[in-house]
């Protein structure tokens, strides 16, 4: 626990947070990666269908959600910075704001899903919508999981369980949350924009 305080110039042997979460992160990246590539190749076999169906997506809400997640991710960076300086309450507030933006993301996404579902679109409508719904729902569940993790960390931070010397927990949650953001950064252009 001695070498946990990360200063700006040091090179660390392991990435921030508990190494265990990184195994999970890499597994998730792999699963999403395969799905992204599968999407691209499925599209290659069916370009017209994909381009046509893509027109019906709500690109604005996708873009807003990207901004929301990036900002939320940024808040977690601030949370980690705060705990490194020993500001537990400030850290908890940054995490709370990150979670708040998570709710904004979920709300926008649910409005989007509602629109699609009430139009009678399901996983079996066509290959494009299968991918669109699978990828976004899969990601949606990751946002929820990330929020649960962040909430647990926020409560611990508020109780003063973390300190400048011991803040691996905050970094662990932040790393996972950044991954959720990172995946959306690819998902958005891939599914909503590129044609």
């Amino acid at each position: 626990m001695i070498n946990n305080t990360r200063t700006s110039h040091e090179i660390h042997a392991t990435p921030p947070g508990d190494l265990a979460i990184w195994f999970f992160i890499f597994a998730e990246l792999l699963a999403f990666g395969v799905f992204f590539v599968a999407y691209a190749f499925a599209r290659a076999h069916n370009v017209e269908l994909f381009n046509e169906s893509q027109q019906h997506l709500n690109r604005l809400s996708g873009a807003i959600n990207t901004l929301v997640l990036i900002t939320s991710s940024y808040f977690m960076v601030r949370a980690v910075a705060a705990i490194k300086q020993g500001y537990s309450i400030l850290c908890a507030r940054w995490i709370a704001s990150a979670i708040g933006l998570g709710f904004v993301f979920l709300a926008i996404k649910m409005a989007e899903f509602h629109e699609k579902f009430s139009a009678g679109i399901s996983l079996s409508t066509n290959t494009f919508y299968m991918f669109y719904l699978s990828l976004t729902l899969f990601h949606f569940m990751h946002v929820i999981l990330g929020m649960v993790i962040l909430a647990a960390i926020m409560l611990k931070a508020r109780n003063g369980s973390y300190s400048p010397a011991n803040h691996t927990g905050v970094e662990t949650g932040a790393s996972y949350w950044h991954m959720v953001d990172l995946l959306w950064i690819i998902l958005f252009p891939l599914v909503y924009v590129i044609r």
Binding site: R6, I11, E171, A174, D181, L182, P189, L190, I194
Partner: peptide, 27 residues
Amino acid sequence: VMLTVLGTAVIKVEMVANYFMGLRRTR
């Protein structure tokens, strides 16, 4: 256009990974 959009995404991912996730200060 496709390469621009995908390239932008790649740059963004690297920024998140290196600066937000802090990977630039690891091995």
